[in-house]
Amino acid sequence: MGGTLISAEMLVSCTTKSKDVSDLFKPEQISFLNEVGDTILPTTNTPGAKAANVGEFMAVMVRDCYTPEDQKIFLEGFDKLNKASDEKFDKEFMQLNPKQRTDLLTALDAEQKEHQRTKGPEDPNHYFRMMKELTLLGYFSSEVGATQALRYDPVPGRYDGCMPYKKGDRAWAT
């Protein structure tokens, strides 16, 4: 009886954070992340990462799930990515054409792989690895990624471990 008098929010309050990502990310940073994501997963015969709004997803994940140290590394990644772009092409990332963006992110991916290979337990994470991981997670767990890039069955049937596969088939989301 008393539960009906007390709001559910008071009973289940598990966070005091605002639901708005603008406390950590500016709208132009979310647009930037969408462009980075769309360079990693561009539109082909399926929608790209921008269609799934991975920038917003990344902002929420960084705000809610990352440690303050990793948040700092991620946020500093904007400047580092623009600096790498400026050094390679004399332009900021948002001013690059798609081929230049791909070339830049390919180089950053090689850099983060080397960093990961030589990284010690106390070394910080690489900002581009975080961006890439969040892009993939955000895209393939979104409605767009699950239903258009992957095969999706909203009510899957029984499990079949020996399902026939033809080369070129999409992976299953469910």
Rank of each mutant, 00 (worst) to 15 (best):
I6E: 11
I6K: 14
S7Q: 13
V12D: 11
S13I: 09
S13F: 02
C14I: 14
T15N: 12
T15M: 05
T15P: 06
T16C: 08
T16G: 13
K17P: 04
K19W: 08
L24M: 12
F25Q: 14
P27K: 10
Q29K: 11
Q29I: 12
S31M: 12
F32C: 11
L33Y: 02
L33S: 05
N34R: 02
V36D: 11
D38Y: 00
T39H: 01
I40D: 04
L41W: 02
P42S: 09
P42C: 07
T44P: 00
T44G: 06
N45F: 10
N45E: 14
N45R: 13
T46Q: 13
P47G: 03
P47R: 04
P47Q: 07
K50E: 01
A52C: 05
N53P: 00
M58R: 00
M58Y: 05
M58N: 04
V60C: 05
V60E: 04
V60R: 01
V62A: 01
R63C: 00
P68Y: 06
E69C: 06
D70H: 09
Q71A: 07
K72W: 08
I73K: 10
F74A: 10
E76L: 08
E76I: 01
G77P: 10
D79C: 03
L81E: 06
K83V: 12
A84K: 15
